[in-house]
């Protein structure tokens, strides 16, 4: 009933993951006691995993916001108590506002740079394990041998490195989020440069 194929994962990586910071920021702007932002995000992704096909989704970003919106509605209804705030927000929803300009997408795409910086920010042993596994492409077993660790410890390091990256790439407003500040600063720089050109 769920599709976790490489193809679906790749689609998700290319068309959904890059929008998570904006989605999170949008949800945080509508935060209420009725739902938890990260619950909504996970449930939204579950809907994407449950879809039979994603080929018919023309604008994945707009679709993503729509699904998240429908999940909020569901939570709000289930909670029975509808705050005035939540009700207002449901009315004022316009997915078209959320469409990215092509230029933004182009700049967002330069992701290897961000990955290089994210690896640099990992804590010591996790970083070492990650670099051996992913940059040098060694199997976990070989990473364990070189680091003189058990294979299950390496597996844990690798798992935590994925979590580290989930938080770093998906963050735009969690407290103490270094990643988001940097991303925003970079975007601001590009925006400024654009304005100077008279766009």
């Amino acid at each position: 009933m769920f599709n976790f194929s490489d193809e679906r994962t790749r689609w998700f990586m290319n068309h959904v993951l890059p929008h998570e910071p904006r989605l999170r920021a949008w949800l945080q702007g509508r935060r209420s006691a009725v739902f938890d932002v990260d619950d909504v995000i996970q449930e939204t992704y579950t809907i994407l995993a449950a879809r039979e096909t994603v080929e018919d989704i023309r604008n994945p970003r707009a679709y993503l916001f729509q699904v998240a919106h429908s999940i909020i509605v569901h939570h709000v209804r289930r909670a029975r108590i509808v705050s005035i705030r939540a009700a207002d927000d449901l009315e004022g929803f316009d997915p078209a506002d959320q469409a990215a300009s092509p230029e933004q997408t182009a700049i967002d795409r330069d992701e290897l740079q961000r990955l290089a910086e994210a690896i640099a920010a990992m804590p010591g042993r996790m970083r070492e394990a990650f670099i051996l596994r992913r940059v040098h492409d060694l199997p976990q077993q070989e990473v364990a041998r070189r680091m003189k660790l058990s294979e299950s410890t390496v597996e844990k390091h690798i798992g935590r490195s994925f979590k580290f990256l989930i938080q770093r790439f998906g963050d735009s407003g969690r407290p103490g989020s270094r990643a988001s500040r940097t991303v925003k600063a970079e975007t601001a720089v590009f925006d400024r440069a654009k304005n100077q050109r008279g766009h």
């Binding site: 976790f4 994962t9 998700f12 990586m13 992704y45 995993a49 990650f130 992913r134 490195s161 994925f162």
Partner: peptide
Amino acid sequence: PGAYLRAKAVAMRT
């Protein structure tokens, strides 16, 4: 399932 799909996608990205 959503959390798992995201974890897979991040792993693929790496």
